[in-house]
Design a protein around this nucleic acid. Structure first.
Lengths: 220, 220
DNA sequence: GATCGTCTCCCCCGCCCGGGGGAGGCCCGT
DNA sequence: ACGGGCCTCCCCCGGGCGGGGGAGACGATC
């Protein structure tokens, strides 16, 4: 019983990339594609996918409105995985509040993408650990705390990796982090690489940005 | 509606001097004094000053930790003006990066002290709250006042530099910034170097951190 | 016992980054 | 006309960074 996925993105290249990555898995099947959120509802009704990989920015109907529309009008709605580029995630939390089950960076490694699809298909909420704090803040005192804790338990950054990321957000170099943690620089490099991969960041600067944008660290 | 100021310095003489200078202004009111950073937080909560004139070197809790503590634990924190004896004080950099809003030399002329207080009180100061240590060091043994003033002037980012910094905070590489701005990578490198120097940042990661910490860019 | 995840450390390698110094063109204000 | 700031581009150069791959030790879990 494979996981069925509907791809919604205005860029054909992105759809092709997601399809290639996901179709390579024997337990995942891409059952359809859409170029805009406006086309999602009929496709969802027709194909009844387990997961909708939803882009945020689309010309006609963006991912936020499309997510709301699907969840309001479809019985037994699919899980919605918000797909976003790194720079334009200001709408991600709106989408999550609209009912999306997780979000994913486009530049994530294939294994991460596959992992994300499987997780949301299983009903788990998928959030990058860095987003937990911000999520809790935006959801207030409601059941958001529960979701935040749940996400925290499935935190994909290990304890050590989180500590390394925290020191990265202090502007420390690998050598300085190594001194601070009493380990070798090679060890720090391993952790940094793991952090970059998990956050979908290309370099430490992007990782620090992700940390700020997600609320992993707060300014001031 | 006068600007209210809290003085924090371990030397009574300095506090008296600052009080005399500031109280001479009809629009500035010194509402309290503290002899150490350890006493700052309750006083800030009680007096709610607009500006805290904070010495860097203090016996119990130095200006760096005190600045961090205030910004982290107080709602609507005051502006923090770092006061120091030496323009090349190593701790100035850390204090500014901790979130301080400005930098002032004790030997500055009264008019400049007043000006500095008014500037940070207005919040929208032209100062970029970052290190002036390197800039001050360049002026070396020159007159302290001029060194400080020049440093403050030089700490202002040009329009182009601000644009480059903004793109840096989006995670772009030098080559990507060059493409975005239709200039050569060497030009971008020049701007980046200028930004790093003015912010006292060692690399682009620290510059991005400074941008977030200072409110140059806001997360979310 | 076997497997998995984590933490630790090592190698090689390419390359972007940042420092230092220099230079020409442009507009501006004195 | 001259100087100053700003933007633009160039050179050389070292070093930190990040990718890729591998490996040993440890504890938890099955």
């Amino acid at each position: 019983m494979p996981v069925t996925v509907l791809l919604v993105d205005d860029e054909p290249l992105v759809r092709a990339g997601l399809r290639a990555v996901l179709e390579a898995q024997s337990d995942i099947e891409v059952v359809g594609e859409a170029a805009d959120g406006a086309a999602v509802i009929p496709l969802v009704r027709q194909l009844r996918p387990d997961v909708v990989a939803m882009d945020v920015r689309m010309p006609l109907l963006d991912g936020i409105e499309a997510t709301r529309a699907v969840l309001r009008t479809v019985d037994e709605p699919p899980k919605i995985l918000v797909v976003t580029t790194f720079e334009n995630d200001e709408y991600v939390y709106e989408a999550l509040r609209a009912g999306a089950d997780g979000f994913l960076l486009k530049r994530a490694r294939p294994a991460e993408i596959v992992h994300a699809v499987r997780l949301v298909a299983e009903g788990e909420s998928l959030l990058f650990p860095a987003s937990v704090r911000q999520l809790a803040a935006r959801y207030g005192e409601g059941d958001g705390n529960r979701a935040a804790r749940a996400a925290l338990e499935r935190a994909r950054l290990t304890e050590r990796e989180a500590e390394v990321l925290r020191l990265m957000t202090r502007g420390l170099s690998n050598a300085e982090i190594a001194d601070r943690l009493f380990v070798g620089t090679e060890t720090v490099k391993s952790h940094v690489s793991a952090v970059l991969a998990k956050l979908g960041a290309r370099d430490r600067t992007q990782a620090v940005i992700a940390a700020y944008e997600s609320g992993f660290v707060a300014p001031g």
